[in-house]
């Protein structure tokens, strides 16, 4: 509840002491506030990306850690820097990586479009619903968003399996069981299913702000609903479409759980390739190179997101 507390007449002692201690140290509160999160993010977000880049230029070797050192120190204080481009050369020359790369983008893009086609009418329906219903429906969208991702993918396997719910249902009508699991189809269903709330929420936030009088004006001037939608609603909702699309597309490219649980052995995706490189082949430098290659695809969409994010902060 947003109420202001009763004005207290005396300052609580611990607070007073904390304040005095801070001012005695001569540090401004402002610097302290920025310092802690900035240092954390630098060490645990920025530096790791640099480390990945560094290790992608090394080679696999047996030992701990299982990669060659970039810097070797000679006896007379000399330092030698050895960089290997072999990992990146391999990424371009081995069709496994190229195919996984292209396939990931294709699967993510198609799944994002399906999620948009399904999510847009849902978001629009929620935005137009009465106040009471709107909150209920919103909660229904948010609930899966909070529910375990892994368990939702698992729920899908129970649904699409050979003897799963769908096939049992079809069996009632004498229809032959469909093979859905371990196919690209299952991966599409999985991505749309798990990321749909990420598509609906930004679209909803955008559509709920839509000025109803514009729609009325359009209708009064004789436009059919479809025309009104194409001429007014759709163009005004472009920011919501961009935000939702990015929120689904970016994580879908690097998805590991969905292709590994729902896809078949032929469903190559770059996240899965990275995982196998690391865990099965223990080729850390190769995995790092795959990560750098993946970053290059997602960096432009991430920059777009950040621009939107800083625009919200400036508001």
């Amino acid at each position: 509840m947003s109420r202001t507390p009763e004005p207290s007449t005396s300052v609580p002692r611990p607070l007073k002491l904390a304040e005095q201690a801070l001012s005695r140290l001569g540090v401004s509160g402002r610097a302290l506030i920025i310092f802690a999160p900035a240092v954390w993010l630098t060490i645990f977000f920025l530096v790791p990306l640099a480390v990945v880049f560094g290790i992608s230029l090394s080679t696999k070797q047996f030992g701990r850690p299982p990669y060659s050192n970039l810097l070797t120190f000679g006896e007379a204080g000399t330092v030698q820097l050895t960089l290997h481009l072999s990992n990146f050369v391999k990424l371009f020359s081995d069709s496994l990586y190229v195919n996984a790369y292209i396939n990931s983008i294709k699967i993510a893009a198609i799944a994002t479009l399906i999620a948009l086609a399904l999510g847009y009418p849902m978001a629009y329906f929620i935005a137009r619903a009465s106040d009471r219903w709107r909150n209920v429906l919103l909660m229904l969208v948010i609930l899966p968003f909070w529910t375990s991702f892994l368990l939702r993918v698992y729920a899908l396997t129970g649904f699409m399996r050979g003897n799963g719910v769908i096939n049992n249902f079809l069996g009632l009508f004498g229809i032959e069981p469909l093979i859905m699991m371990q196919t690209d189809f299952a991966v599409y269903v999985g991505i749309v299913y798990t990321y749909l709330p990420f598509m609906i929420l930004p679209l909803y936030t955008n559509l709920v702000k839509l000025d109803g009088t514009l729609l009325e004006a359009s209708a009064d001037l004789g436009a059919r609903p479809l025309r009104t939608f194409l001429a007014i609603t759709l163009p005004l909702s472009v920011p919501g479409i961009i935000a939702g699309t990015m929120l689904v597309f970016i994580p879908a490219i690097g998805e590991f759980v969905i292709p590994s649980l729902l896809g078949g052995p032929g469903t190559l995706m770059i996240g899965r390739v990275l995982w196998d490189e690391f865990f099965s082949n223990t080729n850390w430098p190769r995995a790092a190179a795959v990560a750098i290659a993946m970053l290059i695809v997602v960096v432009v969409p991430i920059m777009l997101m950040q621009r939107a994010q800083s625009a919200t902060v400036e508001r």
Binding site: I34, L41, I43, V47, P48, V52, M294, V298, M305, Q306
Partner: peptide
Amino acid sequence: TMLAGMISAPLVMPDVITGLSLLLL
């Protein structure tokens, strides 16, 4: 601007990259 970028990037960073980069760190 740099901080604003760094704080929102983990939201969309693919998990495999975050995991691998932290492990290597």
